[in-house]
Design a protein around this nucleic acid. Structure first.
Lengths: 337, 337
DNA sequence: TTGTACGCGTTATCAA
DNA sequence: TTGATAACGCGTACAA
């Protein structure tokens, strides 16, 4: 490894001058030395040592992307297509800004905070935080934080959130189903917090506005864990016999349920209409193609990352609650009755 | 930020002692001071500065995961479900070993190498390298390297490769199709290098062993880029009329093609049989469920990472070419004729 | 058993 | 226009 000191030695000048040339602080250096140094840098293929630089500047050029792992449908968070698309968007934005991305996955908030401090990351992206997790982090960690998909009004005092018009999108889809003549509409998700709760609320509001009474059993919980998913799907298919339409909280669940229905000889949309949420590849490639609520997940990642980067640069965001839009995507799994 | 020096000062002892306690070099420290120090560490929630540590030790505890981006079917590599599952496996293994993972995506080998040096990563994982890319990297970068899915005999002198029995898996699937009575079998992929070439070779060998003549037009190239994918699929569906079965180089392509066929009123497997490769969620949830060749992508990531970590620890791998097994998954998209 | 002092590679301050 | 030199925080010979 060739260092600045080496170069200075071989060129018979001081490290200061070399460093200045490297950083383009060229106003106080003669053109002759600039050229000499630059040529030499090329020649030896000088690569700076980030650790030394970070130590000297007390910066890191690292964006930490921390995700709280849940006991989940995937054995690793990154296998969730939503998450990987999100990471893809973040990675791209971070890379294009000359920063680096470091991913942490942990179910332990404290570990996440320790890592962030250890690496002295310049900014933190938080995903999957529940309740006041985000607040706890921001109390300890003093650099900028941007959360993704976190529903915490309280938290907005501490950080910016990038979310989605979940409630609205869900309201519109439910309205569409109702408009198509459906009145017995089930809602399926695996929990009732955060994003899922917002979507559930949109569904309920639409029912209410149409004068349709909601009954507790219209919410069906799916248990997607490997050991019990088959049982869960059986139960769901059985309960779905009472409905003419089902609104799933994600495209993945919609596709899973359509497969289970198909296995039991139930036809979509002839026997039951199905709607999803996310508009991902699975739904697009399904036949019949899935009617769903669109969101641009990659864009969500990009917006979150660029917002964080802006804050790091000192530009406070106009809005602490950034809501990305949704849109109805009408395809073939919902029929009029 | 609280430093070792601070602690030493407040406790009225030297930084050496504090450092020794932190690192458990406890044989030369009295129990009394150990306790004092440890309690104080807890109290102030001491977090080491990785940059300083790395600089002093000339290590980084970072595993670099470098991927060469191609002009691809996805606007970001991480959106490829194969890649994200791979990353998931790597991330898990790296995290469990107390290391950190840093992802680089670039189409430029030189940028990748510069990053690896800049961060002084302890080991490098390489994915998506073509031809002698891997060799070029290993000539410049002196720490251990493990490649994933790289077909380069020459390269094995320089690094370990974690791959798959692509040829064998493909041979077996083609054999299965033949056994089911198919003789006009098309093969679809988007290129003919590396992994895709190996799978193509397995297909050809199986045809050959069964005395079936291969004609150049039996290889059909798919163009998955967004602008032209529809045209490409139209052409494929047209050409497929001459075949009773089609073997796709990936589950994704299989599902895409089945959707296109369905749109044109062609039924699978009644009108044409379809086989895939990968055994991912898309194929599993498709109806009819996809007959395919299984590989464990997450495991591939874990094996690659642990192998690299072992080499870093000084344990040379027994084999420089690690081939993970494949297996036939017979489901419902291939029928006997 | 504990402390001093130096090196790691870089940047920044200030003097020449 | 250039050069010494002191930080940055940590680890570690070596000395005490």
């Amino acid at each position: 490894m060739v260092t600045i000191k080496d170069i200075a030695g071989q060129l018979g000048m001081s490290t200061t001058t070399v460093s200045n040339v490297i950083h383009g602080k060229t106003k106080e250096v003669s053109q002759a030395t600039i050229d000499r140094v630059q040529e030499f840098l090329k020649q030896v293929d000088y690569v700076p040592n980030i650790n030394a630089r970070n130590l000297a500047q007390n910066k890191s050029k690292i964006i930490g992307f921390a995700m709280k792992a849940r006991a989940d449908k995937y054995s690793n968070l990154l296998m969730d297509p939503f998450v990987s698309e999100l990471v893809g968007g973040v990675e791209e934005a971070v890379r294009n800004s000359g920063y680096f991305m470091m991913i942490y996955i942990s179910s332990d908030i404290n570990k996440i905070m320790r890592r962030a401090s250890t690496w002295n990351v310049d900014g933190l992206l938080l995903f999957g935080m529940l309740n006041d997790d985000g607040i706890r982090v921001s109390e300890k960690y003093k650099n900028p934080i941007v959360c993704i998909d976190t529903y915490s009004i309280e938290g907005l005092k501490y950080f910016t959130n990038v979310g989605l018009e979940d409630e609205k999108g869900s309201y519109e889809m439910t309205g569409y189903l109702i408009q198509k003549g459906h009145r017995r509409i089930a809602f399926i998700s695996d929990n009732q917090t955060g994003v899922d709760l917002a979507r559930f609320n949109g569904y309920r509001r639409a029912l209410n506005d149409a004068g349709i009474e909601f009954n507790d059993r219209d919410f069906i919980q799916i248990r997607p864990h490997e050991e019990e998913v088959e049982d869960s799907l059986s139960e769901i298919c059985e309960r779905l016999k009472d409905y003419s339409a089902v609104f799933c909280v994600s495209d993945l669940y919609a596709v899973m349920i359509m497969a289970a229905l198909s296995d039991r000889g139930v036809k979509v949309p002839e026997d039951i209409s199905v709607a999803g949420f996310d508009d991902n590849l699975m739904g697009r490639l399904h036949r019949p193609a899935l009617t769903t609520v669109h969101q641009d997940v990659k864009q969500k990642g990009i917006v979150a990352a660029t917002t964080l980067l802006d804050i790091i640069k000192g530009e406070a965001p106009v809005n602490r609650q950034i809501m990305l839009p949704t849109g109805l995507v009408i395809r073939d799994t919902v029929r009029a009755i």
